[in-house]
Amino acid sequence: MGDIILDVRDVSKTYMQGKIPVTALHDVTFSVEKGEFVAIMGPSGSGKSTLMGIVGCLEKPTAGAVIIDGVEVTSVSDRQLPRIRREKLGFVFQHYNLLNSLTALGNVDLAMRFSHVSRRERLERAETLLKKLGLGDRLNHRPTELSGGEQQRVSIARAMANWPAIILADEPTGEVDSKTRDAIVETFKLLRSRGQTIIVVTHDPDVAKNCDRVLRIVDGTIMDE
């Protein structure tokens, strides 16, 4: 067994909808090894995105613990969370969430702005990443000038920028055609082959079949692996 990079222990999340408590996650427990490519699948409303939010330190669980790269992130203060997000995590979103006013290079550069990386190094790193993802001739294009697949690759480069412990991708192929989907999956596989841990939330079985492992979540509970 390899090193555990993510350990989710008995995580529950309950929201209040008015005065009625709604359980989004119930005693979720799983772990991910370093370098694994894991898919989380489940129907809409099953709690996948909530789980991603908790693992991504974007919200806190009601109960349980999340340990990322040896740090119990559920017990650190709110002030320390931005640093953990910067250093340990990279996000890939379904809608790419690129800033339209910035070029591809600028979007990747932005991710390093908050990490006190020098401007020169930021640009060098952004350029290298984009070139590795096949966007060497698209560096100075704005998102509106890029195809969906290219935009998603920019967002993957952005997620990679701070060399995170884990890349969290929420429906990264939800908006693209099958050819582009395959290209994105290939990109993830390439990253995995270099030791990058990737967790993908997806509806798409064709994405899931490329993963090392699939976690199925139904009604806030992990049903099987």
Partner: peptide, 12 residues
């Protein structure tokens, strides 16, 4: 939200 996800702090 994107900036926060990328680790922007309150002061940023």
């Amino acid at each position: 939200g994107i900036l926060r996800a990328m680790g922007a702090e309150t002061k940023d």
